[in-house]
Write a protein that binds this DNA or RNA. Structure first.
Lengths: 285, 285
DNA sequence: TAGCGTCCGTTTGTCCAACAATCGAACAAG
DNA sequence: CTTGTTCGATTGTTGGACAAACGGACGCTA
């Protein structure tokens, strides 16, 4: 407790002003003065990152925490909010906070939002996906399990139905690609491709009205990829996937849409923790 | 103001318990009941995402905000902490909060932490980087500016010095790769490769003691890549980069380290907002 | 004129105290 | 064994309060 109280007071008294006119030379480094709630955050964060608090383990009650850290409960709560949004802490069915590791969905949706705000263009997303999707397909071909194959087959069937009925197949499309990525068993790959994928594939919705054939082409392409995966043919899987993504851009060109325009806003679940699991996506031009 | 108060009260009274034994059928969807501070968060988030509050624009004072939303200042503050950690809100030299777009560094470090906690292996990171690094090199070769070439040359010189003096060159190494990625001008690519890169390259520190030649090999490889970039030769740049990354793994094998072990912890700046900009990295086995 | 010290209203950071609502679990009743 | 009931622990929220720091404005002085 004294630890934090001390560091805080220190910070306070040290906070001599550095303002004024234009500083001639950067003689002093900026003082790293953090408000107490931030110190609370960093302290607990450190406990979790270092493993001293294991994921799944319950955190002390707010009152306890505040007492242990020597701050007021309100201050401790602010620190907890910080942690909460980081994903290092989550609430278990109702209240009770416990340590956790951030879920990739949280990370992805966060990253996706950032991409939207940065107004990334279709071209940027496409350039990336032209590499990621074939690559994961190749990897997946060598590792995919029969269960995963079965899941892909079901997905393909559903997609086929959706196309036949004129329904939106965007979600199914995204699932198809995600499942392949999961089949690689490589979490770094998952994280690398997901944010862009969440933005790129919904763009298909913009295309569909212009290109009546797009649905069928997609089903066909997915079928080819799936066949190659089933055969364990990495090169073939990669090549079909490459064509599939390349085709996507061709669709954009044919629909006469400028690929250098920022991609539309992603309307997924706005919050990371909890409700609204289905990723309802929409791409607005 | 009434808007939020209403939605909250509604939530309250609707919160009929659903507990009890094992539910037979999922007849009802879970109620999305959010505490007021979360609603505050989502409301302001929405304002920013929709563009009604522009990045760079100042937010109202906490008192104002609380009054407008019809909640207590403490509650509003908790919502602000959530926003703060999302990166949608930042403090400008001192206090004053203003809207912002999340910085990629924030996102990357967040993602990196997640990867560490998930205990990703060297193999996973390497598999990804074997694709990302050559790919960005190819792209960069077609777009890199002379300024960026110059920066890379300086980096190479510094790396050479560091190697000669037996100093750590990890940071320089990471910078080299990041600069190439930036030269692609593709933000999606930046985001995709960074988290893994932040973890993979520091692993070099583990290698160096075992392989005295590693530094020189690295400088040589960087030199080849840079020459190819300068020549605008995409294929060559990609190929040298591929060899460079492949070599990294060979080093791991030669040092007799199991590449399927989780990668060590990343000790970067723990907080996203502000101080501690230099990415001091360390890889602990 | 550029710089310095001071005063003042505003805003943030922190604390204290309190209460309603909910949860969890134990326990009683049908 | 499912449905109330009760009770302590914990969270969500509110109200108010105060010190510290900031942003300027103002005036003084080399």
């Amino acid at each position: 407790m004294s630890r934090n109280a001390t560091s805080r007071d220190e910070a306070r008294s040290n906070s001599a002003r550095q303002g004024g006119g234009a500083v001639s030379e950067p003689r002093f480094a900026k003082l790293g003065i953090a408000p107490a709630y931030r110190v609370v955050f960093e302290t607990i964060e450190e406990e979790i990152l270092s493993g001293r608090i294991q994921p799944g383990e319950r955190l002390p009650s707010e009152t306890d925490l505040a007492e242990q850290l020597g701050v007021n409960r309100s201050t401790a709560r602010e620190g907890l909010r910080l942690l909460e949004e980081t994903g290092l802490v989550r609430r278990e069915e109702g209240r009770r906070l416990f340590a956790a590791i951030p879920r990739q969905e949280d990370l992805s949706s966060r990253a996706t939002r950032a991409l939207v705000l940065q107004q990334v263009t279709f071209r940027e997303l496409w350039e990336l996906s032209m590499v990621t999707e074939p690559s994961v397909s190749r990897l997946a071909a060598e590792r995919i399990s029969s269960d995963q194959i079965a899941a892909l087959e079901e997905n393909l069937a559903l997609t086929n139905d959706a196309v036949a009925n004129g329904e939106s197949f965007t979600q199914l499309d995204m699932d198809f690609h995600s499942m392949i990525a999961e089949a690689t068993g490589n979490r770094a790959w998952l994280l690398a491709r997901e944010p862009a994928a969440l933005l790129l594939f919904p763009a298909m919705d913009v295309l569909a009205p212009h290109l009546p054939q797009s649905g069928h082409r997609l089903v066909e392409a997915h079928g080819k990829v799936l066949a190659a995966l089933k055969a364990g043919n990495a090169e073939l899987a990669g090549e079909w996937m490459r064509k599939h993504i390349a085709d996507f851009r061709r669709g954009y060109d044919m629909a006469n849409i400028d690929i250098d325009l920022p991609i539309g806003r992603f309307d997924g679940p706005s919050n990371a923790n909890g409700r609204g699991q289905r990723a309802e996506t929409r791409s607005t031009l």
